[in-house]
Design a protein around this nucleic acid. Structure first.
Lengths: 141, 141
DNA sequence: CAACGATACTTGTTGCAACAAATATTATCC
DNA sequence: GGATAATATTTGTTGCAACAAGTATCGTTG
């Protein structure tokens, strides 16, 4: 491999990690103003999408954008905060279904518009053409 | 703002966070085989660049790719692992200079080639043209 | 030159993430 | 149908990150 190619790989890698950190910080700071973490928000969104029947823990883990191995204590915090509830499945008593509460839905509804503003704040400077390029190229990773 | 633009912002945001998580995992798994974390590696690289005089804690914090507020305990772990040493500055006794040890330099040297392989593993699938695009667009964030 | 603020780092504390082991329930296979 | 494997979740433990408060040293200013 050429020296140029290696340097390009490295500088792109560093750019990725740097953008990574900035994005994490922006998300964390935003979520903090709402009293939750980005991970918790992700779970709440999954639960809202799942509807009144809720979603089993394992499926929540599968659907999450950022994977976490410990759904139990993640849901614990949502339950403690009154944003979600646990319901053991009657058909399969191993399964725990997690349901978003009215309070959780209310929080999500209030966050919907600010979340769009966050997207705008982070990515609004890019043209739609560039957004598509970044999205598609990152999707290949 | 149009619906399309909003959806594009959202899907790109999700793509970023997803790539984020995958990258973090790849780096963490790689670093784990060497007994350190990505953050620790970043500090060691800074110390290698600083040379035998070492680098003061605050400057390390400034130079890091992923910012961390607690350099003290980060360096603590490097010192415990025998990869770095602390030396209080004689001119200004508030300042602590951190120096990489021979063991630390040896570890870095052994990692240099595998690190390039990691870059190749993560980004090798992209053309040089696309790498430049991603690097430059992410740099604007 | 003494007091005050600024600087550089450390320490205390809390919460979350990661990994492994344990528990409970269900499915499978002689 | 009872032993065994598989599945779903919980619990134990450790380490790291974040934020705030504390300590030591230095610079500045009247």
């Amino acid at each position: 491999m050429s020296v140029q190619r290696r340097q390009l790989l490295e500088s792109t890698f560093v750019a990725l990690v740097t953008a990574n950190d900035r994005l994490n910080r922006a998300v964390a700071a935003f979520m903090k103003t709402w009293g939750i973490t980005g991970t918790q928000y992700n779970v709440l969104r999954i639960l809202r999408g799942a509807g009144p029947d809720g979603q089993r823990s394992q499926r929540i883990a599968d659907d999450m954008i950022s994977k976490v191995p410990d759904i139990t204590r993640l849901v614990d915090r949502l339950v403690t905060a009154g944003l979600a509830e646990r319901r053991t499945d009657a058909d399969d008593r191993r399964v725990v279904k997690v349901v978003v509460t009215a309070s959780g839905l209310d929080l999500l509804a209030r966050m919907d518009e600010p979340i769009r503003a966050l997207h705008e704040q982070v990515l609004g400077g890019m043209t739609s053409r560039d957004l598509k390029i970044v999205r598609d190229l990152l999707g290949e990773l």
